[in-house]
């Protein structure tokens, strides 16, 4: 039996989706608008994408963004996977509390995270200055900040990917003559791998898109694409910035779709 939806309900659903996606669609459409200033359509062009990549500040921000995203993803994937495996494998005394602590960086407001990291860096700096060392906010501080929130996502995806499997799989491997290391590389890792990759993709997009935490921890000399967009838009919306935003949306959507495909549950027994 097919239940028909009430017409009012489907209208409402369309409205909600329009509300969610119309701004993004407008943004993407106007990135192809052949007009320097804003809101009227003057024909199709791709020239703003060219303009964009001609700008030195954009190229530098792109390099920064990708470097931070790639390096932070690598670090957080390794660390997060270890945390996720640990939570799966061991019956730790404070398991629930530990899992809760992992969720915290996800639910905590970005602003709070940004401010707290800023203060933390200031604190560390003043400590190091007493020893005669110092550092500026920039690549390293942003990188570390990203890693802190990425770890949680990776750990939780890995943990949930393994949720259905018990420790008896490892025992079965050991029983069949595998050393501890080989039972890890031949059984645990292949099982966790889709979760690891999905977690990495998630971490990558989070780093790519992050504005608030980056803004607080980047200092003056270091800019990423979201921060660049923000500082540019303060002076008015321009089509090349539309183009840049559209590209960010595209990369994010691709990564999220890929992550979901990896996490799609296999046909269960």
């Amino acid at each position: 039996m097919i239940r028909r939806t009430h017409p009012a309900l489907s209208v409402w659903a369309w409205l909600v989706y329009a509300f969610l996606y119309l701004p993004i669609i407008v943004l993407v459409v106007f990135s192809f608008n052949d007009s320097r200033f804003g809101a009227t359509w003057a024909g199709f062009t791709t020239k703003w994408y060219g303009v964009l990549f001609a700008r030195a500040d954009v190229r530098e921000a792109l390099t920064n963004t990708l470097t931070v995203a790639v390096v932070s993803t690598l670090i957080s994937t390794v660390l997060g996977t270890l945390v996720g495996l640990g939570l799966w494998r061991y019956t730790l005394r404070f398991r629930t509390a530990l899992t809760g602590l992992l969720v915290l960086p996800i639910v905590i407001p970005d602003v709070v995270m940004g401010v707290s990291l800023l203060m933390f860096y200031a604190f560390v700096r003043s400590g190091l200055e007493r020893l005669g060392w110092t550092f500026d906010n920039g690549f390293w501080t942003v990188l570390l900040a990203h890693v802190t929130f990425q770890i949680s996502y990776v750990a939780l995806t890995v943990r949930s990917r393994l949720a259905g499997y018990g420790p008896e799989l490892e025992e079965a491997a050991r029983d069949l003559g595998a050393t501890g290391l080989r039972s890890f590389t031949h059984v645990v890792l292949p099982l966790a791998l889709p979760g690891v990759l999905a977690g990495a993709l998630l971490a990558f997009t989070l780093s790519l898109d992050d504005f608030v935490v980056t803004y607080f921890t980047s200092g003056s000399g270091f800019s990423t694409l979201p921060v660049l967009i923000y500082t540019n838009v303060k002076r008015g919306v321009t089509p090349d910035i539309n183009a840049l935003s559209a590209l960010l949306v595209l990369v994010t959507v691709v990564a999220i779709v890929a992550a979901n495909a990896l996490l799609r549950p296999r046909r269960q027994p």
């Binding site: 008896e168 025992e171 079965a172 050991r174 069949l176 003559g177 059984v187 292949p190």
Partner: peptide, 28 residues
């Protein structure tokens, strides 16, 4: 366990879900 010439059939079977039947059997 891996150095004992003893094998177990687990209550929950514990087959490796990422391997085919023959790869499961070939594991040991």
């Amino acid at each position: 366990p891996h150095l004992r010439n003893v094998n177990t059939v687990f209550q929950s079977y514990a087959l490796f879900p990422h391997l085919s039947v023959q790869d499961n059997v070939a594991f040991g």
